[in-house]
């Protein structure tokens, strides 16, 4: 379990003090992936540098299994930081080292004896599916392969936490999928806590369990991916599964925002609403997709011929959450401040 407590980071510049992180509290349970999303300049990379212990927080703690690592320096820091494996954007492999040498770097820095190092590297190469590339140089690999080498290097010292800052940005969809699949399997096989910093909402939806929305150095919204997506008022949920619905056509009484709440919603619910309950239903927009924890979906409907309260309670009994929308966008205009 990784816990970040009241993390602050400011920089003193010629123009004065810039507060980049202003009290971040975050718990990342083992065996789970927490995504951190947020607009450019929100402080995501600064948070990442603090967690990977490259920068000292101005205030606050980073606890790994109860031990605060943020205050350490020198030898003590080098000894303890192996609990945190870091994956970089563009993999950041050393170009003059082979794949095997890159993966062995943390072991070599630690002074692990040669044959143990070789065994561990072979194991890691296997784990990331690159056993045949041990002696290749990074320049001879594809972006996705390089990133998997970067992951193997981060795993070398058996960390408790894997931290990734934009590790899939710049990769093609297929390589991204491979990297995500790998992270997904590491979570369950090694029981890792994973922090995934990203701006790609697809990535969050596909692998993350929790998501924290960072804004101006604070966590503006936090929750389970499923919960946020199935909340009709969550701003992060709206970003995770964005919709651009048609306007309500003439002849319809009201517009409903519907979200999948339960994991196994009957896929014929729309038919049932129309056929069994005689509602006139117009599909205005929607996105339904499979997620590792069941279906995620957000749908916009125009409804006529059936009372809104009745429809909402029907849908509720089918595992769907619905709210009537009255012309404006609560999800996109309302800020939900969780941490203040």
């Amino acid at each position: 379990m990784i816990e970040i407590r009241d993390l602050h980071k400011h920089y003193d510049t010629a123009e004065g003090r810039i507060s980049v992180l202003r009290g971040i509290d975050l718990q990342v349970p083992s065996r789970s992936i927490t995504a951190v999303v947020g607009p450019s300049g929100a402080g995501k990379s600064t948070l990442s540098h603090c967690i990977s212990l490259l920068e000292k927080p101005s205030n606050g703690q980073i606890l790994v299994d109860g031990k605060d690592l943020s205050a350490l320096s020198g030898k003590a820091l080098r000894a303890e930081r192996r609990a945190i494996g870091t994956i970089f954007q563009n993999s950041a492999l050393l170009r003059r080292m082979t794949v095997a040498e890159n993966i062995a770097l943390p072991l070599r820095n630690l002074g692990v004896v040669h044959h143990q190092m070789q065994d561990r590297v072979a194991e890691l190469l296997d784990r990331v599916g690159l056993a045949d590339k041990a002696n290749a140089y990074p320049g001879q690999l594809s972006g996705g392969q390089r990133q998997r080498v970067g992951i193997a290097r981060a795993l070398a010292l058996r960390p408790r936490l894997l931290l990734s800052d934009e590790s899939t940005s710049g990769l093609d969809p297929e390589s991204t999928a491979q990297v995500l699949e790998l992270l997904d399997s590491l979570r369950s096989d090694l029981g890792l806590a994973i922090i995934l910093i990203t701006h790609e909402m697809d990535v969050v939806r596909h692998v993350a369990d929790q998501v924290a929305q960072l804004d101006h150095g604070r966590i503006a919204e936090y929750g389970q991916v499923r919960e946020l997506v199935s909340s009709p008022v969550s701003q992060t949920g709206a970003k995770l599964l964005p919709l651009r619905p048609e306007p309500l056509p003439v002849g319809f009484d009201y517009e409903l925002a519907v979200a999948y709440r339960q994991r196994n919603v009957d896929p014929t619910w729309l038919t049932r609403l129309a056929v069994e309950h005689n509602a006139r239903v117009a599909l205005l927009g929607g996105s339904v997709e499979s997620h590792h924890e069941g279906t995620l979906g957000r749908v916009r409907l125009g409804v006529a011929g059936l009372d809104a309260a009745e429809v909402i309670s029907l849908l509720d009994s089918w595992g769907l959450t619905a709210t009537v929308r009255d012309g404006w966008e609560p999800a996109e205009t309302e800020r939900i401040e969780v941490a203040v």
């Binding site: 990977s52 490259l54 930081r81 870091t86 970089f88 050393l94 981060a154």
Partner: peptide
Amino acid sequence: PRENLAVGLVTGG
């Protein structure tokens, strides 16, 4: 590359 320093540090160098 700029990241080399961070790589050296996070790998416990």
